[in-house]
């Protein structure tokens, strides 16, 4: 056989190391991504990193054109992701506003609306249509929604006084009471 004339050489060590490192890197990358996809949205108990939500003019909060999550330490924060093109969002818009009006005087609860992948003119007409008054702003660069790993809209995140998530609502609320019950969990 001709093969015997050539000396038998194995794969050089550097090549073996490169191959295994590459393979391990690929598997880790895919594995971590898979893990991220599987875990779904951020989970109750997770501390929510601070983020900044710019606000639509006319929907500012105490005159400020942007708010940070950390501004509301000591309060329950209800963060609602919505979009004007989202039909199910319309089902809960009035309820959210009603709940906001109910809690606003106490100063214990904050409602924030993050407008996901939307255009400003359409978003404004939506806010107007449902007479929404709580601070609302665009999710610039879809950064906040990616941070929460939202699956779609509407989704609502309940964050407690210490900045930790305690409940995730996927899909629209069916009643004001549903919202109130969830908020009350963390109120004294």
């Amino acid at each position: 056989m001709t093969e015997t004339t050539t000396p038998k050489r194995g794969v050089p060590l550097w090549a073996q190391i490169t191959i295994w490192v590459f393979l391990a890197g690929l598997l880790v990358l895919v594995g971590v991504t898979l893990g991220k996809r599987q875990q779904g949205t951020v989970q109750p108990g997770d501390a929510i990193p601070d983020f900044t939500l710019p606000l639509f003019s006319g929907y500012e909060y105490e005159g400020k054109s942007e708010v940070k999550l950390s501004d509301f330490r000591g309060r329950v924060v209800v963060l609602n992701f919505w979009a004007s093109w989202c039909k199910p969002c319309e089902q809960e818009a009035a309820e959210l506003e009603e709940a906001w009006l109910f809690y606003e005087p106490s100063g214990e609860v904050m409602f924030l609306g993050a407008d996901y992948v939307d255009t400003e003119p359409e978003a404004r007409s939506y806010l107007k249509k449902f007479s929404i008054t709580y601070p609302n702003g665009p999710d610039m660069g879809t950064k906040i929604s990616q941070m929460f790993r939202i699956r779609g809209v509407p989704e609502t995140y309940f964050i407690d006084q210490n900045g930790a998530l305690y409940y995730v609502k996927v899909g629209p609320f069916t009643s004001v009471n549903e919202i109130k019950t969830l908020v009350e969990q963390k109120l004294p």
């Binding site: 001709t2 093969e3 050539t6």
Partner: peptide, 17 residues
Amino acid sequence: VSSVALLIWRWPLLQSE
């Protein structure tokens, strides 16, 4: 992992002129 390991193991046998 198993196919790469097999391949590296048998690499010398696969040598050809």
